[in-house]
Structure formats: C-alpha cells, structure tokens
C-alpha cells in the first residue's frame, strides 16, 4: 500500500477523529489530531495500517503551545502525527499501552520540555542529571544557559 492509498484511507475512515491530513512530501503524511483522540488514532494506524514502528517523539516549542509529533513508519510511508498542548497546561497522554517502545521518548519529553505525560509507566528522569534543579526545561525556547564563571585553580 503506497502513501496515496494510505492517505485516502485515513481521510475516508477516520475523518471524524482527525483535524486535517496532508501529503507533505513523497512518502510523508502529516496528520493533525486533537489531544483526546491521539490514542484512538494511534491504535487505528497500528492495527489497520501496520504503523507499528514509532521512530521517535519530537517536541517543538511554538510559544503559546507545544507541538508534539509522533513519527510512525511502516514499510512504505512515514506519518507525522501531531498534537498541540497549551503551555499553561502541558499534558499529553502516554502511548505506552499502544506502543510499549515509546517509554524512553516520553521520559525524554518530560525532561526536556516539562510536558506531563499522563499514565506513564516509569516517570523517572532519563537524561538530566539527578541534581538538576526542578522546573528547568532546557529545550524550551525561553530557557537560556548561563555559564557559571570558570575558576581555574592557581590561575588568575
């Protein structure tokens, strides 16, 4: 099944669940969904269209909102499934019950963007060190790194 057929199918069968869909580039389909419909759409794509491989989850800071993109692949096409979550209430549902391999990416999102992943099986920190201060999320656009003054022992 090539990407056009997949696009037709998505537009036909789950049109009520998605906000918009488009073929962004050859073999790339961009699908926008509501936060609440994410799990249903993901389950549909996985069971009906064999999108079993979740390559990664990217977060993008858009200012007012955070965009979270789930990159799903099957053997012909890649779907960029995107949801928006407001900065004031950055919550996304965990997709681990559909795709168990998503756990590390969700933990990374929690570390880097401060998104709250609901029902995540393992909420510990993944990448940031244990003495990292609370409430600092490095990949948010308003986060700036202030390099502490370097003290060279014995230097000037």
């Amino acid at each position: 099944m090539n990407s056009e057929a997949i696009f037709e199918k998505i537009n036909g069968e789950i049109k009520d669940k998605i906000l918009e869909a488009a073929i962004a580039a050859p073999r790339r389909i961009s699908v926008k969904v509501e936060r609440g419909q994410l799990l249903a759409v993901l389950a549909y794509l996985k069971d009906q269209l064999q999108f079993t491989h979740l390559a990664t989850i990217s977060g993008v800071d858009l200012g007012e909102n955070f965009e979270v993109i789930y990159h799903l692949s099957n053997d012909t096409t890649t779907i960029l499934l995107r949801i928006l979550t407001p900065r004031a209430e950055p919550k996304i549902p965990s997709v681990c019950q559909v795709i168990p391999g998503a756990i590390l990416y969700e933990r990374e999102l929690q570390d880097m963007f401060g998104l709250l992943v609901e029902n995540i099986p393992d909420p510990r920190r993944l990448l940031l060190c244990d003495d990292w201060p609370q409430g600092q999320y490095p990949l948010r656009k308003d986060w700036k790194f202030n390099r502490p003054a370097e003290i060279i022992p014995g230097g000037k």
Binding site: A55, T56, G59, V60, D61, P100, G101, I103, L104, Y105
Partner: peptide, 16 residues
C-alpha cells in the same frame, strides 16, 4: 534551524 531533533539508533534499541 528552529528545531533539530535527533534520534540516534542506539536509543531505540535500549528498551529491547
């Protein structure tokens, strides 16, 4: 770039 997201192959294999 506005955003560059990199997923190296090793990270994908850790859960396995």
């Amino acid at each position: 770039p506005e955003r560059l997201k990199v997923r190296a192959p090793t990270l994908a294999n850790y859960t396995a």
